[in-house]
């Protein structure tokens, strides 16, 4: 059965979670990885899934020279 955006959001969330501390992933990395796992999923569905993760606050965009998708955390530069 075709995957829903919510299901793909969970897949992406787990990828981000597992990579935390090891590798910062970009939207393109995640999209490629999802499509490799689920060849029937298209880029638009991945986009929708990322939007769900961002709008729910489960993931955040971060920036270090380029933009990444990570779990929310306190960044090292932040002052209290």
């Amino acid at each position: 059965m075709a995957k829903t955006a919510e299901e793909i959001a969970d897949v992406i969330f787990n990828m981000v979670k597992e990579a935390t501390g090891l590798k910062k992933l970009k939207a393109t990395d995640l999209t490629k990885a999802v499509i490799e796992l689920h060849p029937d999923v298209d880029k638009q569905l991945c986009k929708d899934a990322i939007k769900i993760l961002m709008n729910s606050g489960r993931c955040v965009y971060t920036y270090f020279g380029g933009s990444y998708i990570e779990l929310p955390h306190r960044e090292s530069a932040a002052n209290d």
Partner: peptide, 8 residues
């Protein structure tokens, strides 16, 4: 800083 922004 590399993380602050508005939701979404």
């Amino acid at each position: 800083g590399g993380i602050v922004g508005v939701m979404g």
